[in-house]
Design a protein around this nucleic acid. Structure first.
Lengths: 135, 135
DNA sequence: CGAATATACTTACTTAGGTAAATAATAGTT
DNA sequence: AACTATTATTTACCTAAGTAAGTATATTCG
């Protein structure tokens, strides 16, 4: 069981991203774009900093992805009171299409963990959350 | 707990890659390069196909990474009997340095799962392995 | 045998993530 | 008030992974 944990996490991460991208293809979206839309759906408008902090990625990654989402009409940026920051909002188009996308993704997720009982699924999430908490 | 599994896997994958890259910096290696060296250390010489099948990535990804590993002297390619395929070998330099790298990485992995008991670590790997088996 | 198919790898191009440095606005200090 | 430090975002450039298409070698089948 030596050194297998990282390998396994990495493998399943790639697998789930593949499945996610495959599902999103019909909506002309990519997995990272989806993660930001999902974020905004959950919490409402956010600054870019709030987004990258929640998603645990770096600021430039979010800049890039939001620029693409803005170009394709899923979100728009609004100047905030603090002129350095920008508030990101879902577009009307996004609000209208997100529920359908969410439904499809939940189906894929269900398939992926079909071999795990509900208890195992909860246990897995709990264990994953405990990783790297000392950092 | 809706839709949290993929998110959590993705998060921890990014976190462990960051830690891995940080550790490998001293050896002028990146995480994906390491995964191939680890592979060759475990199984001996392999064709590129054997490598990407084991690592569950696509062929072009492995081509690129091996080219870099070859340029920096960690591996070399040898023509196989089937002239389409190429056998990849660890260099002497790699053989000499891998044990030290392995030791360092194991320390980082240990830190990352310090909050989990040994049983939890085993359980986590088992659950991860069950994901996506229907595909 | 020869044409069609399959296989192993490569090339070109896309998105995803990272670091380092630049820019612009804010906050703090003297 | 003015200088300094901090903060939010962006730009430029690196690796990682994917798809699609190209090349060269093997295999299969009429």
């Amino acid at each position: 069981m030596k050194n297998l944990l990282f390998h396994e996490i990495h493998q399943k991460s790639r697998l789930s991203i593949k499945e996610l991208n495959n599902t999103l293809k019909g909506f002309e979206l990519y997995s990272s774009q989806w993660s930001i839309l999902f974020c905004l759906k959950q919490f409402g408008s956010m600054t870019q900093k709030e987004i990258w902090q929640y998603l645990n990625v770096e600021a430039p990654t979010v800049t890039r992805t939001i620029t693409r989402l803005e170009d394709s009409g899923w979100v728009f940026r609004e100047e905030s009171h603090d002129k350095r920051a920008k508030n990101v909002h879902l577009s009307l188009f996004a609000e209208q299409h997100l529920p359908e996308i969410e439904k499809r993704i939940q189906l894929v997720e269900k398939e992926m963990v079909a071999n795990l009982s509900n208890e195992e699924q909860d246990q897995l999430i709990l264990l994953l959350k405990k990783i790297g908490q000392s950092f």
